[in-house]
Amino acid sequence: MAAGGDHGSPDSYRSPLASRYASPEMCFVFSDRYKFRTWRQLWLWLAEAEQTLGLPITDEQIQEMKSNLENIDFKMAAEEEKRLRHDVMAHVHTFGHCCPKAAGIIHLGATSCYVGDNTDLIILRNALDLLLPKLARVISRLADFAKERASLPTLGFTHFQPAQLTTVGKRCCLWIQDLCMDLQNLKRVRDDLRFRGVKGTTGTQASFLQLFEGDDHKVEQLDKMVTEKAGFKRAFIITGQTYTRKVDIEVLSVLASLGASVHKICTDIRLLANLKEMEEPFEKQQIGSSAMPYKRNPMRSERCCSLARHLMTLVMDPLQTASVQWFERTLDDSANRRICLAEAFLTADTILNTLQNISEGLVVYPKVIERRIRQELPFMATENIIMAMVKAGGSRQDCHEKIRVLSQQAASVVKQEGGDNDLIERIQVDAYFSPIHSQLDHLLDPSSFTGRASQQVQRFLEEEVYPLLKPYESVMKVKAELCL
């Protein structure tokens, strides 16, 4: 049975990233139509530049190519590739079939990587351009969430054990800070992308030097003109047959890092959902379990974690691919890159769409948070109580021993009897502590235990987050809708 299948058929496997999760716009960027249309555009740009620099290419040939950029006979191309065992030459023939007058000058002087690699770089750039505003929107939604809850005390956790208090907004800023680093890295790697350009079979530009009869300047002009037509500021000066596969490492490393950030955020949300302090959106008709109707599973956060793990592992592909590119190139890269580049971007696209949807509907339960604080705060307040007693004339050592005994009794009630923490009640009825009984409410005010959390939130948002989001103001209103 021949390899390949009808990918629109229910009898043929289709990647869930495309069929179930990723956005239509990201799927289109990695589609065959987008790819092969870009090949034709690159052939047109090459012909236009070659004509401008004096090669015998007519206006009629150029116009014929322009008129057929979208006229792609995919069936013919597939048949040609089956016959020739070469995808680029299959599309040269297919393009030439609908451009008979231009057929002889299509791909003039070029090698397969002229269309293959340059198209990949265009796709990487455009895919990054799709991700950047999506990530900015996630940051914006979380920034709104953090600002609104900047002063809401909550129990902090280290080692997932109760620690000092923080605020809900401050905790959210930990998430935002990681995503801001990801946004900066995505922008950097996007701006650092260079075009492969017009380089020939081993990167020496020998074929173009021959076409222009040894004119170095025209060869350099050709490279520059096509690079500018493709919208790049610069091209690699040095290439082998391909652009260095280190570029793929750079791009997928940034995406993998984004995956790590999203995994951490969504894990926190899942843990908070278990504590009943916070939940992701839950639709009115949504079913959490087929057997347990009360369940409210954090399905979206779980999906993000599941896909983020996949995204983090994909960076190993370009690392290994770059390491086995012998001399000017081997074909070890080809099949692998067809999979890992598309999957990385479709996965990143999915987790950003999902995280935006989550961040637009996060639900906080202040009463649950308050109750958990009441359970733990008495123990945390013991040092403040000791200091207040010393100020009232008591002995630190005597007070410490009193607190120690009462704390152990209260802990026994919590752990052995399943009761509430009654340390404060014990202190309130103990005559030894009568000098500070009137101060206990103040000493137990949760806001006095959150330090500068709310001020940190305000400063972080104003100095770091809002300036970073400013270039994306025009796209901030787009909502994230999930079908599944």
Rank of each mutant, 00 (worst) to 15 (best):
G214D: 11
T354R: 02
L142C: 10
C483S: 13
A206C: 13
K402E: 05
R194E: 03
T58N: 10
V219H: 05
P446E: 04
E462C: 14
K134F: 06
K415C: 07
R190A: 11
E302C: 02
A235E: 12
F236V: 06
Y365I: 10
N185V: 08
W45Q: 13
I123G: 08
R83L: 10
Q205R: 00
G8Y: 15
A348W: 02
C399F: 04
E417R: 10
Q63I: 10
R372P: 05
L377Q: 00
F236M: 08
F208R: 02
R137D: 07
P471L: 15
A49H: 02
S412D: 09
E401Y: 07
T202W: 01
R196G: 09
R452M: 15
E279D: 03
I339N: 10
S412N: 14
G109Y: 01
Q375R: 04
E473P: 15
M225A: 10
L346I: 15
L258T: 08
I57L: 06
D129T: 12
G214T: 09
A143V: 06
M26Q: 04
Q409E: 09
A381S: 06
Q221E: 14
L362Y: 06
R14T: 15
L314F: 13
E25S: 14
E463K: 09
G104A: 12
E220L: 08
Q458K: 14
I122K: 01
A273Q: 13
R190T: 13
L132S: 14
E250N: 09
R20L: 01
L272H: 05
V219Q: 05
L423M: 13
D182H: 00
M89D: 00
Q286I: 03
S15K: 05
N384W: 04
P298E: 02
Y34D: 07
Q177W: 12
T58D: 09
D445S: 15
Q51K: 08
I237M: 12
Q408H: 11
P471H: 15
M312P: 04
Y294W: 04
V198L: 12
C483V: 14
L193G: 06
Q51V: 08
H107K: 01
S257D: 07
L131G: 07
I424F: 09
K229T: 05
L152W: 07
D11Q: 13
M476L: 14
R125Y: 07
K187V: 11
M89W: 01
T242R: 00
D430S: 13
Q177M: 13
Q397C: 05
E464D: 15
K246R: 06
Q177D: 09
R234I: 09
D422I: 09
M26Y: 00
V475S: 14
T167W: 02
A348F: 03
G8S: 15
V92L: 07
L135T: 14
T242N: 15
Y13W: 14
G214F: 12
L209E: 11
I427S: 05
K284Q: 12
M389L: 09
W39L: 04
G109W: 00
V247G: 12
R270T: 00
F212C: 10
R194S: 12
G4V: 15
H91F: 05
D32A: 14
I339C: 13
D349P: 02
V465R: 03
A273V: 07
W45E: 08
E25D: 12
D6P: 06
E463Y: 10
C340F: 14
H97D: 12
H263M: 06
G96P: 03
T204E: 01
T347Y: 08
R303C: 04
A411Q: 15
R33W: 08
M278V: 12
L128A: 13
F36W: 15
F282Q: 07
F30S: 01
A110W: 00
S9K: 14
D422L: 06
R296N: 07
K284R: 12
A230S: 08
V414D: 02
P446D: 02
R188W: 05
I176F: 03
K415Y: 06
F95I: 06
D117M: 00
S301H: 06
T242A: 08
K35D: 01
E64G: 09
T227Q: 09
S112K: 03
V138L: 13
R374Y: 06
H442F: 15
Y472H: 12
D223K: 01
I436T: 05
L341T: 14
P100V: 10
G203H: 01
S323L: 03
A102K: 00
V315E: 04
